[in-house]
Design a protein around this nucleic acid. Structure first.
Lengths: 342, 342
DNA sequence: ATAAGAATTGACAGCGCTGTCATTGTTTTG
DNA sequence: CAAAACAATGACAGCGCTGTCAATTCTTAT
């Protein structure tokens, strides 16, 4: 029922070794031979047996996704993207959820990837932002691709797929400015996240580009939570209007914060967007479940993850891969929570 | 570095075949021998090579989680539970996200599980609620364990882990009644979900047990969405109060609906819980991100999934497994969105 | 045209385990 | 106590593939 390499060899009239070569994109196979084999592969719908490959070879056909992130939507998207790349390339995916705060987490992860003979790792924050952790892994000759916030890779430890939160945040802030706002507050997420830092930088850059002076009363240091949004917005909206401090727009570091801010505004009978504009970031399902729906920035996580995983697989295979995009800029999604003052 | 079966055989002074027997819990091994081997296994920290097992044996050590569910929190919890069981038992997990509405989905899934030599499937709604689908799989001698809503398995196709939404819904409704409410509305989720039906039944049963007459104006047929909660609550709260139709409590079929209802109440300047109690269901992270926080019912998804997966693995191994719980009743979590009328 | 060199291909062993079946050890029974 | 019955163990092949290395074919330069 299931075709083996032997069937392919017979059908195409070559040895199994040659079939193996074709399947692994090895050089030293004549073009004609290659095509014959590929035809047979197609006809028999042959797919190499992963178990046999893993057993026989010194190479590994398994990559892992090591994560620790409370945002289920993010994780699922990443995972599905990675999975798509794996399926395409005949790789296996080991999922490894874990607690990045745990004492011996690095050793634990190393153990797991040794045990399972993992060839490479896709890392997302917070792991991707921890150079010590990354170094420990790459020192073991295990390939790594990191997905992280920024515009260029921070070091040479591994290839990175960058998410340019800064530019995106600048775009969002500019959107607010274009709407006529000049008192724009920023509710930050936890400062331990690079994404917070980057988004903040983008916000500041937009202000600067438009000659709007930064007012530190309009900066709230929060964390990535609904509650933080509620408190931040409350604090902001109780600023003295006479002193011209009270903002007419709030840029929240993510959608959850924005939802909280939205909620607080509602509590204070401030109508959105007539009296106050609120923007989020992430385009999580959350942002469509608020009322009004949130203006936000969309990052195509599935696509990012798929690309990162393909990159990783090319690395593992020692093939080059030219059509990788190494920087993504989240795109502005304008919905109903931002508008001109009226 | 990594111990093989050979090392264990040498250390314990038996043949590799005997070690294999011990590792697979096969009979026909003397107790003394078994212990010797187990000691060696422990000393060498030996773990059988999955690839070799899969390649050599006719048995498979892979189970799959086939899902199609928009609720990322649910999926992640399920997946992590299944993963935990797999790790414990030395199984491999194949993750298979897919679209249950797709034309040839059944064939696709069958193809995948044949290709990967999957021994068993963990199914959650909507797949677990589709008997045709389940039958197609079990006809192939592939083991299945279903997680679904109800109190007893609907058929003999496969073992089931039941989530007794009905009893839980009754408990929630009773909680509302105990608080003094007797005009309790129900905003349903999509009727194609068993969970909706079950939760509705529990609601009706609680009414009946307390001699409260069912008022069909208080039943809103919605779907599992925020918007549905908004619309449902609006409709309910505009009911004529004079006719004594307007509810003082709303039982929403899940947290998302409840969040919508909460939001609508806020829009109408109805204070929660002073003027209206709202209960959700699911205890999703969502329910802690509303204000006030939602009273809801908690289902320990991770644990349910872990149990279901262990059950599946026992089936696959043809071992019996007595300590499985086959029914879970979600527990009432009282928070701030329900209270007495004041 | 021909030898040296390079490119292509194949034979064969073996990865770590399980299935089959033969062998050895231990009980039971007449 | 011998024979039959059964329990415990091991020898060996082989799962489907890859790595090594030798054999073959094709180039190229002389």
């Amino acid at each position: 029922m299931k075709a083996t390499i032997n069937d392919v060899a017979k059908l195409s009239g070559v040895s199994i070794k040659t079939v193996s070569r074709v399947m692994n994109n090895e050089p030293s196979v004549r073009q004609l031979t290659r095509e014959k084999v590929q035809a047979a592969v197609k006809e028999l719908n042959y797919q190499p047996n992963l178990a046999a490959r893993n057993l026989a070879g010194t190479k590994s056909y398994t990559i892992a996704y090591v994560y620790d992130n409370p945002n289920a939507y993010y994780v699922i998207d990443m995972q599905e993207g990675i999975l798509a790349a794996c399926r395409q390339q005949g790789f296996e995916l080991l999922i490894n959820p874990c607690d990045s705060q745990q004492e011996n987490i690095t050793e634990d992860v190393i153990n797991t990837i040794k045990q399972a003979r993992v060839a490479g790792l896709v890392l997302t924050p917070p792991f991707s932002e921890n150079p010590e952790f990354v170094k420990r892994i790459t020192d073991l000759d295990i390939h790594v691709v990191r997905i992280m916030s920024g515009d260029t890779a921070p070091d040479e430890l591994s290839p990175c797929v960058m998410v340019n939160d800064r530019d995106a945040a600048q775009t969002i802030t500019q959107h607010l400015i274009d709407l006529g706002h000049n008192k724009i507050a920023f509710i930050a997420g936890g400062a331990e996240h690079m994404s917070t830092i980057e988004r903040y930088k983008g916000y500041r850059r937009a202000l600067k580009a438009n000659n709007i002076e930064f007012n530190k009363n309009l900066l709230i240091e929060g964390e990535y939570s609904f509650e933080s949004g509620v408190n931040g917005a409350k604090q902001l909206m109780s600023l003295d209007n006479a002193a011209e401090d009270r903002p007419s727009a709030i840029f929240s570091c993510n959608d959850e914060i924005a939802a909280g801010a939205l909620f607080a505004a509602r509590l204070m009978n401030i109508s959105i967007p007539e009296q106050l504009s609120i923007a989020g970031f992430e385009n999580s399902p959350f942002s469509r479940q608020t009322w009004p729906k949130l203006t936000t920035a969309n990052q195509p996580n599935k696509e990012i993850a798929k690309n990162a995983a393909s990159l990783l697989i090319s690395q593992v295979r020692k093939q080059k891969n030219n059509n990788e995009i190494s920087q993504y800029v989240p795109q502005l999604v304008v919905r109903d929570s931002t508008g001109q003052l009226s």
